[in-house]
Design a protein around this nucleic acid. Structure first.
Lengths: 191, 191
DNA sequence: CAGTTTACATTGCGACTGTATTGTCATCTT
DNA sequence: AAGATGACAATACAGTCGCAATGTAAACTG
């Protein structure tokens, strides 16, 4: 065997370039040559690490979702269930540049998923994961008389929608946070 | 002048074909030739009615948004403000085949808008319009102690998010409606 | 009837796409 | 030392893309 190279690391390098492209020029601006150019490598190398474009796309999406999940669980360190829920949901919203980038990519893939079922099932699984985690926290908080599953789904939908509106600049960041807090107040009682 | 042809009607014919394509194969499956084939005409005709692909895209998006708006205001006929708000929001959700199609198209354009600012401003304007209408209805309903603008924004975000989850099949239709009703109950009081 | 104008259809061009093929090293095994 | 193998690089190919150019037929104006 020849030179030892960390396969995964190279793939992440390429997927990072893909992310930047997707955020800047949309998913349709992503081509093998563009990714190669953005990463500063040859297109042959891209082909070496991803046998097909689809494989590259799928890997990139997985990477983004992993990062979001990692940051979310990292933010879940201290505090009451309510603060935990708030912290987690705030991590999903595009409130800084890296998260805005990630949200752009997720949105692009969300539209892409409408066509490619395999992508769709990846997204679905990831969403289900966060939803049950959220529901557990709501259950622990034990607000009387509300279905935790339902409330979790509602919160997630709200945050998704807010993220959407933030991305299309329909909305100021502080208003989005305020909307989330208002909803939390409705669920948990006034702060 | 030669044969008289309803310009607008032809453009709608083509935009309809575009919608079908966008819903079935995504916005990247939309090309001049595909639209022509789907509409059963020559690509020359498509070029005749839209000088550029971008013009065609913009027109199609406008058409979809007009239809959604038309159906929403049509649904706003009778009833109390609360029922009116519910009816309007239910019109936005993808609960039947035509609305699912429209939502697919809107989602595709939403992702597209992240790259093309002109598309983004169209979407933004349309959203602002529904939001103020919604806020007016909430004000009329006069639930004590809640900011109508905020609540309207929150509701719209919730419906957007629910629509997103419905499209990606994360969610059953009845659950989405239930989530909406739960939120309305929080705002207006129990039904 | 001549001529202009509109409504298309056909064709072609240059750019770009994903992918297959092939080649060239450097490294590891034996 | 020989050869197999992995890490790339370069190129070629068939297809598609948006768009421009050109052609043709029909209808209206004068």
């Amino acid at each position: 065997m020849p030179r030892k190279v960390d396969h995964h690391e190279r793939r992440e390098l390429l997927a990072d370039a893909l992310m930047r492209l997707a955020a800047a020029r949309g998913l349709e601006g992503v081509s093998l040559r563009h990714v190669a150019a953005e990463a500063g490598v040859s297109t042959g190398m891209v082909q070496h690490y991803f046998r097909t474009k689809d494989e590259m796309m799928t890997f990139a999406l997985g990477m983004v979702m992993d990062r979001i999940r990692a940051r979310s669980t990292a933010a879940a360190a201290p505090a009451t269930p309510r603060e935990l829920v708030r912290g987690l949901l705030l991590q999903v919203l595009p409130l800084d540049e890296t998260r805005r980038l990630e949200n752009h990519v997720v949105l692009a893939f969300l539209a892409y998923a409408a066509v490619k079922p395999s992508i769709a099932s990846d997204l679905r699984e990831s969403a289900a994961q966060t939803r049950t985690f959220l529901a557990d926290q709501l259950r622990a908080a034990g607000a009387a008389g509300l279905d935790p599953e339902r409330a979790a789904a509602g919160l997630l939908a709200l945050v998704d929608g807010l993220g959407l509106q933030l991305l299309s600049l329909q909305y100021a960041e502080e208003d989005a946070v305020a909307a989330l807090d208002a909803q939390l107040a409705l669920l948990f009682g006034p702060a």
